[in-house]
């Protein structure tokens, strides 16, 4: 019986043998950015280079010397000439800053960085033992000033000269947008090469789904549900974005502090613990997935109708997700 099943499994291989399967991955955006596709042409190098480029240009923490990256923009008030990709990314960020009603905020770089170090330790600190009540209080004390600084920060873009000029002393951090943007750009490369069967995986939190090998739908399963295998959606040829506290969080006195900062309060606390968004524009979904977690179900419903995406929102139930609400259309895709 097993042998016959095994032979049956070989059949699809025989059918799809005419096209080669390609796959690749790169360490970018602090996670694994990978892609798989079926095509006659190998466009993996293009995607690899693109992902690396976006990662370097949009990295606010690493000093790349003289290169015109976000790090440089954050260290000066001069107009810096940048690569068109970074310019476009910045434009997208500003557009989404408005659309999410400031729940996605590219100016809170210093606050994000402060909480990252306080809660999870610096990148090179291997002996970090975790935050204490006092270290959190210290961080909290700095927030009001940093918030004020962030509110007074903005950027000036010059389309003709391709320059970005930072105004104010806050740091620009586009981390909540880069994965989605990278997935969207990777999908553009695949589409321009006429690839229809693909999967672009931006560190699990951003997915670009094309068609599957066997023509059925992708089965996307959300983890961290107390009931196993109950959060599965059948999707195809669409993008998804997931925001959750569980990837990186610390629980202190029963409260979950995560890497997601609420720009309205400057605190890493959210009422909702996970948001799963499905729609056409990966970059937009990335910005809205954290915004939905911050703003709640009524706003999520309003935005989903206005910007044409589907959402599924959850709150925390002892370290697992508890369903809050979701779009009617998304319920239809549940298995």
């Amino acid at each position: 019986m097993k042998k016959r099943l095994g032979l049956l499994l070989l059949l699809p291989l025989l059918v799809s043998c005419s096209e080669t399967r390609y796959s690749g991955s790169v360490l970018a955006f602090h996670s694994f950015f990978s892609w798989k596709y079926v095509s006659g042409k190998d466009c993996g190098k293009e995607i690899y280079d693109l992902a690396n480029k976006i990662d370097t240009l949009a990295d606010p923490y690493t000093n790349y010397g003289d290169a015109n990256t976000l790090y440089k923009i954050n260290s000066t008030h001069e107009a810096i000439e940048v690569d068109p990709i970074l310019f476009d990314l910045m434009k997208t960020a500003l557009d989404l800053y408005a659309k999410t009603e400031h729940n996605f905020d590219p100016y809170i770089g210093k606050i994000t960085s402060l909480w990252k170090t306080t809660l999870f330790g610096a990148d090179d600190d291997f002996l970090f033992e975790g935050p204490s009540n006092s270290s959190i209080e210290e961080a909290k004390a700095l927030i009001p000033a940093l918030l004020e600084e962030a509110r007074a920060t903005s950027v000036e873009l010059d389309e003709n000269k391709m320059t970005i000029k930072r105004i104010g002393d806050g740091h620009i951090d586009l981390g909540g947008l880069t994965k989605g943007y990278a997935v969207e750009e990777a999908e553009k490369i695949l589409h321009s090469n006429k690839v229809s069967k693909y999967l672009v995986n931006g560190g699990q939190s951003s997915l670009g789904l094309g068609k599957t090998l066997d023509g059925k739908n992708y089965k996307v399963d959300l983890m961290y549900s107390k009931v196993e295998k109950e959060n599965t959606f059948e999707l195809s040829e669409i993008d998804t974005s997931t925001s959750g506290v569980y990837e990186q969080c610390v629980t202190i006195d029963g409260k979950m502090y995560s890497h997601i900062i609420n720009p309205n309060t400057g605190m890493p606390l959210t009422d909702y613990s996970m948001a799963f968004l499905v729609g056409e524009d990966s970059a937009l979904l990335d910005a809205f997935s954290t915004s939905c977690m911050i703003a709640g179900p009524e706003k999520s419903e309003e935005w989903s109708k206005k910007y044409n995406f589907m959402y599924s929102l959850y709150e925390d139930d002892g370290g697992y997700t508890k369903f809050v609400s979701e779009s009617e259309e998304l319920t239809k895709t549940r298995i």
Binding site: L9, P12, S34, N201, L207, K216
Partner: peptide
Amino acid sequence: YIEIESDNWSDITIG
């Protein structure tokens, strides 16, 4: 990084 694949890459888990 341990990558786990099936013959048909259509099952994805995120969260």
